[in-house]
Amino acid sequence: MLMVPAWSDGRTESIAGWAEAPPTGVGEYTVEAVPVAATAPVSGRGDEAVQGGFACRGLLGDAQAGPTVCLSRVNPGLAQFFFDLRWHLAPKSGERVVTGILIRQEDRAEPFQVIAGLDARTATQIDNAGFELIDMDFDGYLDMRLIAGGTAGPNVLYRNWLWLIQEEPFMESPGAR
């Protein structure tokens, strides 16, 4: 059975355990590899978006830094991915600052993509550190976006990464920034 984040008290739990009450804190990961059936990715026709979801877990309480871990399937024909958002609280502003994202396949311990050097700032009240997975380019694959920072008005600035079918990592889309 695939095990997902090991919590600070030493417990591990299966993905099914994510529906239960949240634990007290996130620790390191443990993964027991499982065979993954070879399935072909499902392609969109260009006129609909994949309606995928994602679930995130983060530290509870007054944590000053830590990971927020999200789980999602980018396409029904692909394995699930873990998105590990690394963040800390800015000392003066109190904003949550996401500094990096590590992305790994559910049955692998090592990330296949590391996005470093981020300085994405959000209020602590914003869910999932401002992280979302949505199909922005209507290709049938979920893309990733992260709130880059607040503005004085109602607009929100995002950093966007598109899943490129041929490349298979997420590629930042500077034009959609």
Rank of each mutant, 00 (worst) to 15 (best):
22 P>E: 14
23 P>A: 10
23 P>M: 10
24 T>L: 12
24 T>Y: 03
25 G>H: 07
25 G>N: 13
25 G>V: 00
26 V>A: 00
26 V>F: 01
27 G>F: 04
27 G>T: 01
27 G>N: 09
28 E>Q: 15
28 E>G: 12
29 Y>V: 15
29 Y>N: 15
29 Y>H: 15
29 Y>G: 14
31 V>R: 08
32 E>G: 08
33 A>Y: 07
33 A>T: 15
34 V>H: 09
34 V>E: 13
34 V>S: 10
35 P>K: 00
35 P>L: 01
36 V>A: 12
36 V>Y: 09
36 V>W: 01
36 V>G: 06
37 A>L: 11
37 A>Y: 03
37 A>Q: 02
37 A>E: 11
38 A>G: 05
38 A>D: 14
38 A>Q: 12
38 A>P: 04
39 T>E: 06
39 T>S: 14
39 T>M: 07
39 T>K: 06
39 T>H: 04
39 T>R: 02
39 T>C: 10
40 A>S: 14
40 A>D: 14
40 A>K: 12
41 P>V: 08
42 V>G: 02
42 V>S: 10
42 V>F: 13
43 S>H: 15
43 S>F: 15
43 S>N: 13
43 S>P: 11
46 G>S: 07
47 D>G: 14
47 D>R: 04
48 E>N: 10
48 E>G: 13
50 V>L: 13
50 V>M: 11
50 V>C: 00
51 Q>S: 13
51 Q>R: 14
52 G>A: 07
53 G>P: 02
53 G>E: 06
53 G>D: 07
53 G>H: 05
53 G>V: 06
53 G>N: 02
54 F>V: 00
54 F>K: 00
55 A>R: 15
55 A>C: 04
55 A>K: 14
56 C>N: 07
56 C>D: 05
56 C>P: 01
56 C>A: 11
57 R>F: 08
58 G>Q: 06
58 G>N: 04
58 G>C: 01
58 G>Y: 04
58 G>R: 02
59 L>E: 14
59 L>K: 11
59 L>W: 01
60 L>I: 10
60 L>K: 11
60 L>V: 14
60 L>H: 11
60 L>G: 15
61 G>N: 06
61 G>W: 03
61 G>D: 00
61 G>T: 07
61 G>M: 00
62 D>M: 00
63 A>N: 01
63 A>H: 02
63 A>R: 02
64 Q>A: 14
65 A>Q: 11
65 A>P: 00
66 G>V: 03
66 G>L: 04
66 G>E: 03
67 P>N: 12
67 P>C: 03
68 T>H: 06
68 T>A: 03
68 T>K: 01
69 V>W: 00
69 V>S: 03
70 C>R: 02
70 C>T: 03
70 C>I: 05
72 S>C: 08
72 S>V: 02
73 R>K: 10
74 V>Y: 08
75 N>A: 04
76 P>H: 05
76 P>Q: 10
76 P>N: 05
77 G>W: 04
77 G>C: 06
77 G>V: 02
77 G>M: 04
78 L>H: 04
78 L>P: 03
78 L>Q: 11
78 L>Y: 09
78 L>A: 10
79 A>T: 12
79 A>N: 09
80 Q>L: 08
80 Q>S: 12
80 Q>E: 13
81 F>D: 09
81 F>W: 12
81 F>V: 07
81 F>Y: 13
